[in-house]
């Protein structure tokens, strides 16, 4: 689907994702983790539909379970001893909850990244950084684009090989392995060549030279101003609030949270507004579109 948030100015998208990555990595309070995971999960489903649900359940859930199990196996710190492990080290409540917290944190960051990939396309990235750091931004955008591009190309090559009976689905196991390696070798050659070709073609077009202008369709309009005010305002409030201990939570040696005061509640509410913002924008624009449609 076409995302409404993607229609905003690239700086806003980039600012939003930088802030949300920072927040979801550093805020370890259970409430902020829940907010982050729920928002990231629902936004990725809104953006990518069924494939996001499948990815989240198939890969993210096992990863979360693994992260949650690994921590108490190696970390035995904590005041509440539940039982003792086979080798004599204690199994503590704190290490289990910390394992779950890191698992939730990891999952929400991965979810936010999948949203980032949909919203921040490489042309937007280059639009923002192409002037300041032309070489690095091109390299970065090529690196980020590499895996999806490689995946698409491997399908093309594999289909072509299938036509001549040399795909990984043809022949005996040995033959299949041989074909697979052949396809891989084709792909590596292609990837190297493609990278050089991209760099050359950018060079011939004068990319990164001083005085060169680039066409872009991005305008910083009224809607963007409003968005930057809300994102900047809530984001700044959340960061300042966290800095002054509004989201304080410690896991070791015993779990202790910031007392629920109007200040801490306000920080959490600001964080909720901040995290849920793109979802609100999507739904709001969707409704506006439908309303306009019915009037015609």
């Amino acid at each position: 689907m076409i995302s409404a948030f993607a229609g905003y100015h690239p700086t806003i998208n980039f600012l939003y994702f930088t802030l949300i990555f920072l927040c979801s990595v550093f805020f370890m309070h259970p409430i902020s983790l829940t907010i982050s995971l729920v928002c990231a999960f629902s936004y990725s489903v809104i953006l990518r539909g069924k494939s996001a649900v499948r990815f989240n359940l198939l890969y993210l859930l096992p990863m979360m379970i693994m992260a949650a199990l690994i921590n108490p196996a190696f970390n035995h710190e904590g005041a509440t001893i539940l039982t003792y492990l086979g080798n004599g080290n204690p199994l503590t409540l704190e290490s289990i909850t910390y394992g779950i917290a890191t698992a939730v944190m990891l999952a929400s960051v991965v979810c936010w990244f999948s949203c980032y990939n949909v919203i921040m396309t490489s042309d937007k990235f280059i639009y923002i950084f192409g002037r300041v750091i032309p070489v690095l931004s091109l390299v970065l955008s090529m690196a980020i684009r590499f895996v999806p591009k490689f995946k698409a190309q491997i399908k093309v090559v594999s289909n072509a090989q299938k036509c001549v009976g040399r795909d990984v689905s043809n022949g005996s196991i040995l033959q299949r392995a041989k074909n697979g390696i052949k396809i891989l070798s084709i792909m590596i050659t292609w990837a190297l060549e493609d990278a050089i070709e991209t760099a050359d073609s950018m060079k011939t077009r004068g990319y990164g030279l001083p005085g060169r202008t680039a066409f872009s369709i991005y305008h910083f309009d009224k809607r963007d101003k409003k968005a930057i005010l809300i994102i900047g305002g809530t984001g700044l409030y959340v960061l300042l609030g966290a800095f002054f201990g509004g989201m304080y939570f410690r896991y070791f040696p015993s779990m202790k949270s910031v007392p629920i005061t109007p200040f801490s509640i306000s920080v959490f509410v600001a964080y909720l507004i901040f995290s849920i913002l793109p979802i609100v924008i999507e739904i709001w624009e969707d409704r506006k579109w439908k309303q306009l449609q019915s009037k015609i």
């Binding site: 710190e77 005041a79 001893i81 204690p90 040696p253």
Partner: peptide, 28 residues
């Protein structure tokens, strides 16, 4: 430590063929 419900964590260090006490009572 088990009997008195005091927390204690150790790790095995094969090179010295002994365990190493990392923390007692959560003081590491």
């Amino acid at each position: 430590m088990k009997k008195n419900k005091i927390h204690m964590e150790f790790v095995n260090t094969p090179i010295y063929n002994s365990v190493y006490i990392e923390g007692i009572n959560n003081l590491y």
